[in-house]
Design a binder for these strands. Structure first.
Lengths: 336, 336
DNA sequence: CTGAAAGCGCTAACAA
DNA sequence: TTGTTAGCGCTTTCAG
């Protein structure tokens, strides 16, 4: 592995000049530049970025904490993060936490040892260990898709979750439904509460109540959606429509409804959230909320970059718009 | 940010002793150790791993090149990589290449600037730019799930693809099918050729031919599976069973079959490959090949680690077993 | 426009 | 067991 000294020797200049040629070519004379570049070429020199980063005191890497990398929605967010990171000369370290504090603390801790310049947290928990809280205070972090519960120190990039849930509720009511069930995500999550609040509000605006017996908690997974649907649909006065707070749970719910001999949307309408690619291929295709996942990731990275560079943020909260996607999993209330 | 010097000063020892206390506590006396640890605690010292890595000449990071992070199969492989990496004190850099050479070259190039100590390539292409080939020769790399076409310089961790395709073929033949179609992945991929060869071999062993008109190329995506099925099923003498080389294409194929008014598996049996979680929730649930995805990732990381440490490999090829998962998307040939 | 030299924080060889 | 010191490869300040 060749180093800057070798290039310097070979081109008869100092290491400083080689460094300058590579970082800021226009400050060296054309002749020198040519000589240096020739030498670079001859020895196949690549700067050791480990040294450069060390020297600059930055890693030029960001750590992304993702609760579940197998969720295709997060994949899209990560894509957006990566694209923006690449544009800005940053690399992306992946931390699949499975929602477990131990993993979060491990990966978040990497920012305390200069392995990452900042964090993007896609979950709703404060990722640092309590004992690290003091040190962590100076670590740039942004929350994307989620919000850290009861902690407004960090900027947030999120969807208009409340509005999206309202849109779903309105859509279902317009179809004539009034007995509506909800399969939520973990209720500890602020966005779950946002969605629930928006949904409830929309119902109440039309004089309907969201019966608490028709609200069941899921885990954003297909099996939990299946279990939730089973609970809701086997009750007396079962709902004629179910709003699932992500597509995976909706897929589980459709599966369960069919298993119970019900038709979708004939007997029960089912709506999801996220618009993952699979939602187009379910039977029936899923009515859902499209989230601008890549944009969420991109804004998160751009915001984080500003924080890393200690530049002022335009706003500590970026709210992106949703889009209601109507497909065939929701339909008019059937006469009984 | 405190540094090792500050801790040294505070505890009245040299920086070397602080360093030793942290890396190899048993070589310092208990009293000294206690003093040092106390100081570490007081100033909230965390070693700057950027400096440590630089000093050691290694980044302790590996770059994972993944063609499509939205594919849940790869998510599981990445999980396995990450787990193993964490165990070994490595971090994981993510490079979502979308199968594009420019992206591969960009991310692979990070190993040439010491940002990664090695590469795990999940696609079938040689990821470096031609001009980097010489330098790249010394970069540790392992191929997982795929093989780099016509390049046996790198160790491989893969499935018994040939055997798996044979198992699918046998299963379909046992159900009475003889007009069998295949939706492949990109034919440039060696594993696609393996699967095709295995499949063909199994048919021929029973005196059946794999009609080339019943083989169509997909891209491992749901839309391409849908297109493939449309082509196969609208032909005269349409196949009564279709083997799709991944689950996503199978999901697209089921979608298309239903769209054409066909029942699955009544009119056409459809089998997938990978056993992604969604394959349990399709209607009907998918017969498929279970790949030990996490294990593939883990072995890849462990192999890469050996290469990074310049230790001998037990074998340049690790082949993991598959498991045929029978569900309801395949069924007996119906009388016509 | 270019060079000399200090220094980033840590490790490790060598001495004591 | 501990301290001194020389780097690791690069950037950057300060002179020239």
């Amino acid at each position: 592995m060749s180093n800057i000294r070798e290039v310097a020797r070979r081109s008869g200049v100092s290491v400083a000049t080689v460094s300058r040629t590579l970082k800021d070519p226009k400050v060296v004379s054309p002749q020198t530049r040519a000589r240096v570049l020739k030498a670079v070429d001859e020895v196949g020199y690549r700067p050791n970025l480990l040294a450069r980063n060390f020297s600059s005191g930055k890693s030029f890497a960001v750590m992304v904490l993702v609760p579940n990398i197998a969720n295709p929605f997060f994949s899209r967010v990560i894509r957006g993060i990566e694209k923006a990171a690449q544009d800005q000369g940053y690399s992306v370290l992946l931390g699949d936490t499975k929602g477990q504090p131990a993993n979060e603390q491990f990966y978040a801790g990497m920012a305390l040892t200069n392995q990452a310049d900042g964090l993007i947290q896609l979950d709703s928990s404060y990722p640092f260990a309590d004992k690290d809280a003091t040190l962590a205070a100076s670590v740039p972090m942004v929350n994307a898709c989620e919000r850290i519960a009861e902690d407004d120190r960090y900027p947030v990039v999120e969807l208009d979750n409340r509005g999206a849930a309202q849109a779903i509720a309105q859509h279902l009511m317009e179809l004539g439904h009034s007995r509506i069930g909800v399969i939520t995500g973990p209720v500890a999550s602020p966005i779950v509460r946002d969605r629930l609040a928006g949904f409830r509000q929309a119902l109440e605006k039309r004089g309907l109540q969201l019966d608490s017996e028709r609200v069941t908690e899921g885990e954003f997974t297909m099996p939990s959606g299946q279990r939730g649907a089973e609970a809701l649909l086997s009750a007396a006065h079962a709902p004629t429509a179910i709003f699932c707070m992500n597509d995976e749970m909706a897929i589980g719910a459709i599966h369960q409804a069919k298993k119970m001999g019900l038709t979708v949307p004939g007997d029960v309408s089912i709506a999801g959230f996220d618009n993952i690619e699979f939602s187009q291929f379910t039977d029936p295709p899923l009515t859902t909320i499209d989230q601008p996942a890549e944009a969420l990731g991109r804004y998160a990275m751009e915001t984080l970059r500003l924080m890393i560079d200690a530049k002022p943020l335009k706003s500590s909260r970026t709210i992106l718009p949703f889009n209601l996607v109507l497909r065939e999993s929701t339909g008019p209330l059937q006469d009984v």
